[in-house]
Amino acid sequence: MSKMHIIIIGNCGSGKSTLAKKINQKMNYPLLHLDSLWHSTDYSAAAKGWFSEQQRRFMQQKNWIIEGNYYDTLPLRLAEADFIIWLKVGRLTALWRVIKRSLKFHYDKKSRTEMPSQFSEHFNREYWDFLRFVYSYDERQTEQLVQEKRQKHSVVLIVKSQRAKDQLQERLLRLKRLR
């Protein structure tokens, strides 16, 4: 059986974690949530090195799923990916989902199981800066990296709807059975 390395990228609030969990449940491949790693650090320069190293170690497995953006380490994941799933949603949809999940998480820490236990969100200036980042999310840099990978024969799947997400899960299951 050959390997299957899947990465899921997209703006905050696009549904990366949710889709990754669903694929994980169906395929039983190890899953790495990048938010879980990064938000367990002190965000220092040393943490950045540790963050990259943890991804490298995880990617040594035969099959895996990694979800998250983190543009600085995206080339590392793209170099190993067989399947790139890029979730695209509108800005307002992304903003609404981020605000909704933040409120939910504020009242129920179990609502985001991919987040480390010490993570907390505060509705302060830093949070508003984050919302500005979500709204102004620019796909151009990511697009360039993905296009380079596409030329090297990786499968790039751009997903824009729930129906497409459902079809994608079935397609991956069929591929798993064929490998």
Rank of each mutant, 00 (worst) to 15 (best):
R171A: 12
S17E: 01
S52W: 07
L32E: 03
F133S: 11
N11C: 06
K62L: 08
Q54V: 10
Q167L: 13
E80W: 07
F83D: 12
A45E: 15
T41L: 03
E114Y: 02
K160Y: 07
A164G: 08
S52N: 09
E80M: 14
S117P: 13
R150Q: 14
S17P: 01
I158M: 11
L74W: 05
I7W: 00
V98C: 04
F58E: 04
Q60M: 14
W50R: 05
T142M: 14
V98F: 02
D72W: 12
Y43L: 09
D72R: 15
H153Y: 11
H153I: 13
K26G: 10
N28R: 10
E126G: 11
G15I: 01
A164E: 15
K160A: 09
K176N: 11
W50H: 09
G10A: 04
L168A: 04
W96N: 09
R125N: 15
R179Y: 08
G10C: 02
A81D: 01
H153C: 11
I65E: 00
E114M: 03
E170G: 11
L95D: 01
I85F: 02
N28G: 07
E121K: 08
L103S: 06
R132V: 15
L172D: 00
S111C: 05
D82T: 09
V134F: 04
L175T: 07
S154V: 06
